[in-house]
Design a protein around this nucleic acid. Structure first.
Lengths: 248, 248
DNA sequence: CGAGCGCTTGACATAGGTCAACTACTGTGG
DNA sequence: CCACAGTAGTTGACCTATGTCAAGCGCTCG
């Protein structure tokens, strides 16, 4: 089975949908020209594995569209997601040849890949890239630490609420109009992926979603479509001090 | 009460004990000269708070000696440690004015501080610093993700074993001689700090330590001194695939 | 139609949390 | 030197949130 032939209705970095937020966001036109030369696109179908932990990884990449998961697995099969990669997020570590985590496509996925060696050289020579990379890495570190609080100290109900708050906020991109009170989105994750992300079993995920529905915090339309009638209420359930858990 | 007057038996960057690993590790002598001008030392006693979450923070710093903890607290008081800062680790985020986490001195602590604005300018103008900072941030991100697996999926016994494995390895600095089978160190953390780090209560920490002692995985001398007769056995108890949980 | 997958629900088990008592130190003041 | 109080840690009894195991539903695909 071949990678999905995702429609790509753009051709050059200038029209790229993640131009403003990806690792190349700060590049000047001449720097983009250099990037163009070493970049190529790859598509994956939902469910496919992009890289296995321990594999040699000869590229780094930006997520262009779709969602990818970064996860870690213990010998006995317990797994923990350690990152949820949305469009513009960066995959791979410059300077490391072997992938530390498994990367899987959760939905159909398009990535903009750069061959590793040339990209590493560019990081060294192009401050616009290395600065942006540092900034993005610091953001990821903050997100990871936020997640540590969730994993270590929150209850199952708070965990689910937090996840919905994050997905809700990120899937209503820059609707700057303050915090809209009502919100609607499709869950891009299976119950199992949610469990792996939250450190819960699939059954607990299911039960807590049902419970949140019963108390009116969320409304479901089918299994995947979620409506949040009162976003502040959701944040309260998440145990968050009103910022939805995404420090910037 | 004033900060502890810790003995500092070095005076310039050239003799600094963390010269090889800190954010300044890659600097040339002339670059160090610039750093010298904006640096100053601060000491804290065990237990003191270095910065409160939400406070304005006008410096960034390297830990020179002692141990600091980074932690996050929810409104109702639940707290989670999100970082254990050992000598050479970096504190603060360039580009951010407000501290996102609380920083406390767990032992007596000496930090090499840089005023924030001049340091940020240096990061922009000195590739040796920005590169090292990126590298250190990526390492921290890896450590945070390793910790997410621990918090989300490990049992209490595995958590304690993992913590001991990490402290054990880091406190036997570069004894390159492979993995010595036996190992000995002092715990720099109270039971409470361990609980906050591992997402456990103090009682569970205590019980699991007792249990590990009973099964002969560890030996105690007083409350704080730990001896590991068989390090491989400890790693096995930690559920780690033999690397002690510190990817580099 | 049957198989398989994603999800839900129930009954039950248990790891870890909670509450409370107790020990062992350590420092303070009389 | 002796209370004394305060801090750090341990242990026990009990409780509950979450995991485990098992059954079943409602899709979609072949």
């Amino acid at each position: 089975m071949r990678p999905a032939d995702t429609v790509m209705n753009f051709s050059s970095c200038g029209d790229c949908p993640i131009r403003e937020r990806a690792v190349c966001a700060r590049c000047e036109p001449d720097e983009l020209d250099v990037l163009e030369k070493i970049k190529y696109y790859r598509s994956y179908e939902a469910g496919q594995t992009v890289v296995w932990a321990g594999d040699r990884m000869d590229f780094v990449a930006s997520v262009v569209s779709g969602i990818a998961c970064l996860s870690q697995t213990m010998e006995d099969g317990r797994t923990q997601m350690v990152g949820l990669l949305l469009p513009s997020d960066f995959v791979g570590r410059p300077g490391r040849a072997i992938a530390a985590y498994e990367v899987t496509a959760t939905t159909d996925l398009v990535m903009c890949c750069f061959r590793k060696k040339p990209f590493e050289d560019l990081v060294e020579s192009t401050p616009a890239i290395s600065r942006r990379l540092l900034e993005m890495t610091l953001d990821e570190l903050d997100a990871a630490r936020e997640w540590m609080l969730l994993l270590g100290r929150k209850t199952a109900r708070e965990k689910i609420s937090s996840l919905f708050a994050i997905i809700g906020q990120r899937s209503t991109p820059f609707s700057g109009e303050g915090m809209r009170t009502t919100l609607e989105f499709d869950l891009p994750l299976t119950r199992e992926a949610m469990g792996d992300y939250l450190g819960l079993t699939i059954e607990t995920v299911s039960r807590q979603i049902t419970a949140l529905k019963k108390s009116g915090v969320i409304e479901l339309d089918g299994k995947r479509h979620v409506r949040i009638p009162d976003f502040q209420r959701l944040l309260a359930e998440a145990g968050d001090d009103s910022d939805g858990g995404m420090p910037s």
